[in-house]
Nucleic acid binder design. Structure first.
Lengths: 355, 355
DNA sequence: ATGAAAGCGCTAACAT
DNA sequence: ATGTTAGCGCTTTCAT
């Protein structure tokens, strides 16, 4: 029965400092109302003994866990073709670390996992959840929302009401991209969409239409955020409208596919056809030929804000059970406030050589 | 004082099933020695009440946590330019999920975080750690190893003895790459290295030398796993040895840089200079011009094996405190066994158009 | 095979 | 301001 190095307990610290457990607890938790003289003694004892509070024991009584779950609902596609996800995690991690909150990562592989994740979250092992789900028909967000756990979504979910989320300004970013192309004098600006069961793709399409409301419908081709989809769409575009002189691709991956097809077809980029992507996915965007002009979003900041938003009301006490009342800001505005029920981060056009 | 939906306790289940807490506990934990008739009643009560065990209470007495930490020690560079990391996490997640073990993610930002992570790990909040660190001089692995927590490293650490790790066969993969080039009839095969403070880069260089032991030293140029480094190295190579007819780049990112320089210099790939990368980093490798021949490693499997290796002895009981005695296999062999103190996974050459 | 009871280490009333 | 005390929900001897 290996005795695992017998960690010192509060009791041990109390004895060494010559005070009661309660006093040690107060000092350790930074509660006011302990004479400095005693506090000093306690802190010394803590240091000498290498005392570390037992989280399990603490959770048992406080009913808090100082842990939040990060649920990523789509390992199969984009998430793993893209450092996007890693950046967001980094932002989240920074914020959580700063508040001494643990990050429990939940990756779901498919429908089977939904139940498991739902059970875990409803099981009261974490104080909140940060959820990424890209598809409108994904039941997981609903399950989680229903679990009565404070939750913040990454990316606008496909439904409204009582939901908190952080997103980038997909629509505004799309407008930036398309305006850039029209400012270049391009008159036949096409759009390669993303999969339209994702709000980001829908929003980018909407942004495109904002700028080209009278647009030729044949200039819009379906993509799916993959290079192969971008190739297909670009071929269709070239076929239908040989006079196309600009393309706004819904992401950099499909832009890469489009570039390849344009090159094959003998078009020069940007001279014959200008191309703008979205995401500023590195190293792809930089290494593309020619380097891709694209719309950048501050992914890490999105993660940070998600965590901050979730933790904002964490202090109030253990698992509230109810999401916050909705208090949307203007919606799609560029200002970001942690007071809002959703935050939409601005995007930035990064000019390289493709447009 | 929001009462957080008062989860049912063991007590509640016991009462409903008309048995004692102890019996419910046995059933829930699958302990043998409960009459089936009773067990059935208990299970029904559990279901009806939606009982979920309180992990904190359980940990408090068992001193186990059913949680492991995943420590990623280098958010700044490669980890976040590369889905590598995400794939590995996925492998880990799958294995942990299957055993109902939680994944606590620890991302470290720099030296400041080392202490924090060390404290956390030594603090006894998790049953083990899976650690990624790329630099030989990183003190973190040592700290963690010293914390007396069962640990498995991702990638061979820069020191030997009593360490368990999972790695891919960097050296063998490099040999595959270079042999492929020589089999193509190339006689002036250059190598763009990675940063040589990482074992993966050193091993790949060694593999190159295995095949070209008599090699012209001017054919080896320092890179750093980045596209910019690859460009610099390729320029140096072209400068020193204009007759170079093949390049093995230590990773795909630097290969991409090399491709760009070759193109600029008017060389055709693969006709004039053949290029092989390492990693099969998608989408980069596929989208390169021309698509990159490269060495693939099964990243997800590496993650899975790390978790499996860690959990193998987890069953024995709470935090052993001592790492396992070393039981290395042949070292660098291609067979992978979960019995070994380290596992080295095979690599695979993926032929595309660059060589 | 089952139950009774003793804690695991901590926080939070309550008492002083 | 500090100490005393009563659990938090669970597992685990130890009786039966």
């Amino acid at each position: 029965m290996p005795q695992a190095a017998a960690r010192p307990t509060l009791e041990a610290v109390a004895e060494r400092a010559g005070v009661s457990r309660a006093t040690v607890s107060r000092v350790v938790n930074g509660d006011a109302g302990v004479r400095e003289a005693l506090a000093v003694k306690v802190r010394r004892a803590v240091r000498e003994l290498g005392y570390v509070p037992n989280r399990a024991a603490r959770s048992l009584v406080t009913r808090r866990h100082d842990a939040v779950a990060v649920v990523i609902a789509e390992p199969e596609t984009r998430v793993f073709a893209d450092p996007f996800f890693a950046r967001q995690l980094r932002g989240i991690s920074k914020e959580l670390t700063a508040r001494d909150v643990q990050l429990v990562l939940l990756l779901t592989e498919g429908r089977d996992d939904h139940e498991r994740v739902g059970r875990y979250l409803a099981g009261g092992h974490v104080d909140g959840a940060l959820v990424f789900s890209l598809h409108l028909d994904d039941p997981l967000p609903g399950i989680i929302h229903g679990a009565g756990l404070p939750t913040v979504f990454g990316g606008r979910p496909g439904w409204t009401g009582g939901v908190r989320y952080v997103d980038c300004d997909n629509r505004g970013g799309a407008r930036q991209a398309v305006r850039h192309l029209t400012a270049l004098g391009r008159t036949r600006v096409a759009h390669i969409t993303g999969p339209l069961d994702q709000t980001s793709a829908v929003d980018r399409l909407d942004g495109y239409r904002d700028v080209v409301p009278e647009g030729d419908p044949r200039l819009v081709a379906d993509g799916d955020f993959t290079p192969a989809g971008g190739e297909r769409a670009m071929r269709a575009l070239l076929d239908r409208c040989p006079d196309v002189d600009a393309v706004f691709a819904a992401n950099d991956l499909s832009a890469a596919g489009a570039l390849r097809v344009l090159r094959e077809s003998g078009r020069r980029v940007p001279q014959d056809v200008a191309v703008v992507g979205f995401d500023d996915m590195l190293p792809l965007a930089e290494q593309a030929d020619p380097p891709l002009t694209t719309v950048r979003q501050d992914i890490e900041e999105m993660g940070r804000l998600m965590a901050a938003m979730l933790l904002r009301d964490q202090a109030q006490g253990p698992g509230q059970g109810q999401p916050q009342p909705d208090a949307p800001d203007a919606g799609g505005g560029e200002a970001a406030s942690e007071e809002a029920a959703h935050v939409v981060l601005p995007t930035e056009l990064v000019r390289r050589e493709s447009a």
